[in-house]
Amino acid sequence: MKKSLLGFALLFASVSAFAQTWSLDKAHAKLGFEVTHLMVSNVEGSFKTFDVKVTASKDEFSDAVVELTADANSIYTDNDKRDAHLRSADFFETEKYPTLTFKSTSFSKISDKKYALAGNLTMHGVTKPVTLEATLNGTTVHPYSKKTIAGFKVTGVIKRSDFNVGKGTPPAVVSDEVTLNANLELIKD
């Protein structure tokens, strides 16, 4: 029995030892979204304060674990009045729910550079599974820092009603479907 436990511990330790952690280069990243307003125009916004950590043992990221946190108070749509309304109880209720989180449950390779990124999104106190599309733009060595970097574009569509965000606002005013757009540059630690 002791040999089995020791063997398992060594196997786990060797797998963990090969895992690489990637941190967000905040100067080269954006977490954005888009909704349709009054069924005729698109309005874009972003979260100015967010962080992403990726852990992967494979160079092609097929076993990656992605963790994201965003400060709901940092919502920005280039309109102070609208931003204050989005932070209110009518939408994100940021005093009560200040953080949005995502933690992946799988990162499955679909094709050469495309992945299905599945995980649990928590927003406005509600956690739901979502699947997003991730595209690996590439990896390279940064010419100045000499560190390995990777670039991803992550997109997907969620329904705000699934998370009770803006439940008093009809979809004819602000679309229920929200398009997510993230551009991430990651640095291998």
Score class of each variant (00 low, 15 high):
2 K>S: 02
2 K>M: 02
2 K>A: 04
4 S>P: 01
6 L>Q: 06
7 G>H: 03
9 A>P: 07
9 A>S: 15
9 A>K: 08
10 L>Q: 09
10 L>H: 06
12 F>V: 10
13 A>L: 13
13 A>T: 13
15 V>P: 01
17 A>H: 07
18 F>I: 07
20 Q>K: 15
21 T>D: 12
21 T>L: 05
26 K>R: 13
26 K>S: 15
27 A>G: 14
27 A>T: 09
28 H>M: 12
29 A>S: 15
31 L>N: 15
31 L>V: 11
32 G>R: 15
35 V>S: 10
35 V>L: 10
36 T>P: 04
37 H>T: 03
41 S>N: 06
44 E>C: 02
45 G>D: 05
45 G>H: 10
45 G>F: 05
48 K>A: 15
49 T>L: 13
51 D>S: 15
52 V>R: 12
53 K>V: 10
53 K>Q: 14
59 D>T: 14
60 E>Q: 10
60 E>C: 07
62 S>I: 14
63 D>R: 11
65 V>M: 14
67 E>F: 07
68 L>T: 02
68 L>C: 12
68 L>K: 14
72 A>L: 11
76 Y>A: 14
77 T>M: 15
77 T>R: 14
78 D>C: 04
79 N>V: 05
81 K>C: 05
85 H>Y: 11
85 H>E: 05
86 L>Y: 08
88 S>E: 02
88 S>R: 14
89 A>C: 06
90 D>K: 10
90 D>W: 13
91 F>I: 13
95 E>W: 00
96 K>P: 01
96 K>E: 06
96 K>L: 08
97 Y>T: 01
97 Y>P: 04
97 Y>A: 02
98 P>S: 03
100 L>M: 12
101 T>H: 08
101 T>F: 11
102 F>V: 00
104 S>Y: 08
104 S>K: 03
105 T>D: 13
105 T>K: 06
106 S>A: 12
108 S>T: 10
111 S>C: 03
111 S>A: 14
112 D>M: 12
112 D>G: 10
114 K>E: 11
116 A>M: 10
117 L>Y: 06
118 A>V: 01
121 L>D: 00
121 L>P: 00
121 L>H: 05
123 M>Y: 00
124 H>G: 12
124 H>I: 06
124 H>Y: 04
125 G>D: 00
128 K>R: 15
129 P>F: 02
130 V>Q: 06
130 V>R: 09
131 T>N: 14
131 T>P: 15
133 E>H: 08
134 A>S: 10
135 T>E: 03
136 L>R: 01
136 L>Y: 09
138 G>Y: 03
141 V>M: 04
144 Y>C: 01
144 Y>P: 01
144 Y>I: 00
144 Y>N: 11
145 S>M: 08
145 S>C: 06
145 S>I: 00
147 K>Q: 12
148 T>D: 00
148 T>H: 01
150 A>D: 04
153 K>A: 05
154 V>Y: 12
154 V>R: 09
154 V>N: 11
155 T>S: 11
155 T>P: 02
155 T>R: 09
156 G>D: 01
157 V>M: 07
160 R>P: 04
161 S>D: 01
161 S>R: 11
162 D>A: 08
163 F>H: 06
168 G>N: 08
171 P>L: 03
172 A>Y: 01
173 V>H: 02
173 V>C: 03
173 V>A: 03
177 E>A: 09
177 E>H: 08
177 E>T: 04
177 E>I: 00
178 V>D: 01
178 V>W: 10
180 L>M: 07
180 L>K: 03
182 A>G: 06
187 I>C: 03
188 K>E: 05
